[in-house]
Nucleic acid binder design. Structure first.
Lengths: 183, 183
DNA sequence: TCTTATGTTAAATAAATTCTTAACAAACTT
DNA sequence: AAGTTTGTTAAGAATTTATTTAACATAAGA
């Protein structure tokens, strides 16, 4: 390989690394480990990768790549692919950020809605019991009522969040906010 | 205080704790420390709190409360209030989850768009240089073009994310997805 | 102005997370 | 079926993050 060709090749790597760094940095705000973030960002510029290629490219251990890739599969940012002829598993990164966004946030928000709504329902039941209990003093009843109402109000948010998830899943959000806008 | 009144009082605490636990658990998925998550969830049921009250209530150190409250102020989930007569600073939790949602995600997404868009622009400039460079071999040029196009395509997502932020900030999203829906 | 109360910064400790080495299990080849 | 390659699980080491204790700064009140 000629010297100048080698130089432009390393310049390509540099250019990619700028984006890889930015993606990795924002991703670890998304609750994935640095290894997983770097891995996804690296795969974003690759067609497909095997565990051994990941290890070589990132200079990390194989178990680290194995767990990272699994985590990325969980949040649907990486998929396993079938590669005939190779015994090694191959993986591809989801390169459509719209789909990554959808999978990640919908999963996250659904979890949040479920967990908090369940707690709210249980808690409200408790407050009702306190209110109905003849042994409760008036100030306790008043407090219970107040908290009950506060929780009741908060439900509107969780219902809205559920609607948001739904509109993302069924694509209707893109009627309201088109993917490509007029510049 | 009578025995039965005490019992209903502790039942109120139990009922609150269910919701506090759920909120705190989902919040630490949002990148805040457990202390900050617990603090916000606790404040959600309080009118206002001073640092000393926080420390007593959560049984944690004052510096921990101080840094937690600051972090919560950064993401606009807590605000400082003016309480005449008291030398102590008082703080209130943002109890409207719609506003918390708005502040948190808009901040986060704007940061993501800015950081990644900047990296993409720089990176694309580099690829253009490589493409124009007469010393670049054809395969290097082809690769540079491919990456350039991939980045160009990804911009649509970041523009869309910006639009989403805008529609949340100006409230137009609530025309598409109303806050209170028909059940 | 001096003292006391409140809040923050800095250093040190404790706890949790991330990654690695090593042992193991599964599956493909020969 | 035995051996080899590949991937995962488990245990341990290392790093990072969170929290506390202690010292400091700031501002209010005496």
């Amino acid at each position: 390989m000629s010297e100048s060709s080698e130089r432009s090749r390393s310049k390509i790597e540099e250019a990619k690394d700028k984006v890889i760094g930015a993606i990795a940095e924002t991703m670890d705000l998304y609750g994935v480990t640095p290894a997983a973030a770097n891995l996804y960002a690296t795969m974003y510029f690759k067609d497909q990768m095997t565990l051994d290629e990941m290890r070589t490219e990132l200079e990390m251990s194989k178990p680290s790549m194995s767990t990272s890739v699994r985590k990325l599969q969980d949040i649907k940012m990486v998929k396993k692919t079938f590669t005939r002829g190779s015994r090694k598993h191959t993986y591809v990164a989801e390169k459509n950020f719209f789909r990554s966004f959808m999978e990640f946030y919908c999963l996250m928000w659904e979890r949040e809605v479920k967990m908090n709504m369940e707690a709210i329902e249980e808690s409200q039941d408790d407050f009702i019991e306190i209110i109905k209990d003849s042994a409760s003093t008036p100030d306790v009843v008043a407090e219970a009522k107040q908290f009950y109402d506060q929780l009741e109000e908060s439900k509107a948010y969780y219902l809205w969040l559920n609607d948001l998830v739904e509109s993302i899943r069924n694509g209707r959000i893109f009627e309201f906010l088109p993917k490509e806008q007029a510049k």
